[in-house]
Structures are given as C-alpha cells and as structure tokens.
C-alpha cells in the first residue's frame, strides 16, 4: 500500500482526546509495518500549539482556517478531502467519537474512498492491511480488506492504550493550505453543559449500571438500593437514557462518560462497543445478563447468567448484611 498513514487528531475544547492517542498508537504500528511515514493531521484555527503532544507521529500537517474553528463536519471533511486529494495518503485513521462523527461520515463521500467502520484491530499483512471490525453490537467480528488507498478507517476507542500514543519529542509541524469550499449550511452556536446538581458518575468508586435487561423503570429503584448500600451511584447504557429512566449525564460510553470506578456492576447490559468503551477500565467488573453470549462477558471479570433485577436485589441485601 503506497501512501503515508494519517491520523486525524481530534481537538475538542482545547485539548487532544484520548481516542486520538489510542489511534495514534495503532497508526504508529501500521506505518512502521508498511515502511511509510505516520502523519497526524490537525484542523483548526489558532490551534497549532495542540500539535506539540503528537510526538508519536513523524510529523504533523496543520491546517489553520477560521471555518475550521468549531469542528463542523461539513467544513472539516472538505478541508481534509482537499488535503488528501493533494497528498495521497494510503490510510486515514479517524477516532470514532462524537466529536469526529460528522467528519467520519462525510469524508468517504467527499473523497469517494472506502470506509472501514467499527475497526477494533488492524495489522499489516502481505504488504496491505487487514482490519477487524466489530459488527452487530459486538456479537460478530469481520475480517476486512479494502484495496488501494486512500482508505478511511473508523477506529473504535480503546484500540490501544492512550499512553502508547503519547510521548516523543515535539514533532515537526508543517502548516499546509487546504483548498476547500466554505459554507456548508451548518453553523455551530454554543455548547450546553449538563445541568449541575446531579452526581458526577466519573467521581464514584461504586457504580451500578443498568441497561435494557432491567426491563422497566421501576427496577431502576432496585439499582438505586444497591448503589446506596455500596455508597455509589446508578448509571446506565443508552437504552435506559432513551427511555428517559435516567438523564444523559448518567450515561456511560459514547455520548456519555468514561468511568473507572473500583467496582462496576453491569446489569442487563449487552456490552455493545459504544458502552464498553466507557467502562472497560473499571477495576472490578461484574456483569449480569440473561444472554450467556452477551459481549459484556468478555469485558467483565465475573459474570452471572441470571435475571439482572433479582441479582441486584440479592446483592443489595448481601452488602447491607455485611456492612451491618
């Protein structure tokens, strides 16, 4: 595969995201295996300083433009497509996060390039790259090839430890001009922070997480009882947020928080990649699910195939008894 490996650096609210460093670590391996350069691409306005932490790359291509200040996908995808058309990278790795979401969706259309989605592994094989993508909520893994570049790769968070993508001397930064059309019909106005006053789930030692498998809203109270017994809080996966059983600030995973408590109970949560990216680094994970093949059991330390509510109830009782 000719062409360099690119990693699109994600800068949000002034800092480079962990997902960027994770993808950077993967990109380093691929570039070394292919014998090409690893280049980080940073798009922004007055954001050049952020490039200093991308030292695991061989160099940084920085595009500065007022239209790129707010990270709107309509503009960033055009700028990146213009740059790629001029430079001919072989692979373009993009972190799969909400910040890069629109860029990721639009770039393949702008570049007329293939996309490998849900990528959780990539290895150099026979001069090309073989990707592994998680499909069907993490229940299947597809081994994927993608022909000649450029290929856009949506890299799942957690593909490598973020630490592996940090370090290295400040890289050479080349400021480049991308010739793109401004004014895509989408304008960022403001951020709305979640309402203060609710618990901060990222600061809890004990988290009781509930998912679709708890079946109804009344069972959130059972989880609350266990959380109270442990001295922690209740959080949830997407389906319980969608139902309005818990507010968005209690969501773990994509759109929500990344948590690392000392103890995490996943009750009735199947373990789709969108959820596990936010909790896989918890110190101790116990998963309860009726489906023995639920992907959550490959992330958990201990697993229980049982009705989630029954186990939460019994565990609350056991904890109360021991705490006296």
């Amino acid at each position: 595969m000719a062409g360099n490996v690119w990693i699109v650096a994600e800068s949000w609210k002034g800092s480079i995201s962990d997902a960027t460093y994770e993808a950077l670590a993967l990109g380093r391996e691929l570039a070394d295996g292919l014998g090409v350069r690893l280049e980080a691409v940073l798009l922004g306005h007055g954001a050049r300083a952020a490039a200093a932490s991308l030292g695991r790359a061989d160099g940084v291509l920085y595009v500065d433009h007022p239209a790129l200040a707010d990270g709107v996908g309509e503009e960033t995808s055009r700028a990146l497509a213009a740059l790629a058309a001029a430079r001919g990278p072989g692979l373009i790795l993009v972190p799969t996060t909400n910040v890069s979401w629109d860029l990721l969706g639009l770039l393949p259309a702008r570049l007329e390039a293939p996309l490998v989605n849900f990528c959780r592994e990539a290895v150099v094989s026979g001069g090309g790259v073989e990707f592994t993508s998680l499909l069907y909520g993490g229940k299947m893994a597809a081994t994927v090839g993608a022909g000649a570049g450029p290929v856009v790769v949506a890299v799942l968070p957690g593909v490598r430890p973020a630490e592996a993508g940090k370090g290295g001397a400040a890289p050479a930064v080349e400021e480049v001009v991308a010739d793109f059309v401004v004014g895509g019909g989408v304008r960022w106005l403001e951020y709305e922070e979640p309402e203060a006053g609710d618990v901060d789930i990222t600061q809890q030692d004990f988290l009781v997480a509930v998912g679709r498998g708890i079946s109804n809203e009344a069972n959130v109270e059972v989880a609350e009882e266990l959380a109270a017994a442990l001295g922690g809080a209740v959080c949830g996966s997407r389906p319980v947020i969608d139902q309005g059983w818990l507010p968005l600030v209690r969501q773990v995973g994509k759109s929500g928080a990344t948590v690392k408590p000392r103890f995490y109970v996943a009750a009735g949560i199947s373990g789709a990649p969108e959820h596990t990216e936010g909790m896989k680094d918890a110190e101790l994970i116990v998963a309860v699910n009726m489906d023995p093949s639920a992907p959550i059991f490959s992330v958990a330390h201990y697993g229980i195939v049982e009705d989630a509510t029954d186990v939460l109830e019994a565990l609350a009782e056991a904890v109360r008894k021991r705490k006296g």
Binding site: P114, A141, I285, S298, H301, Y302, I304, V311, A314
Partner: peptide, 27 residues
C-alpha cells in the same frame, strides 16, 4: 465495497469467570 474475508464470533481477549447458583448464592 470493502470486502469481508471472514465473519466469526469475536475472539475475546478475556472472558469473565462465571458465577453460578441462585441469585442469593451469586450475590
């Protein structure tokens, strides 16, 4: 299109140690 060479259940990096018994037992 991207080409799927193989589809399989994911090889888990690890797997939970399963606890068995009634809800009270596992609790």
């Amino acid at each position: 299109p991207v080409e799927v060479a193989a589809l399989a259940k994911p090889e888990a990096a690890g797997h939970a140690e399963m606890l068995e018994g009634s809800a009270q037992d596992v609790a």
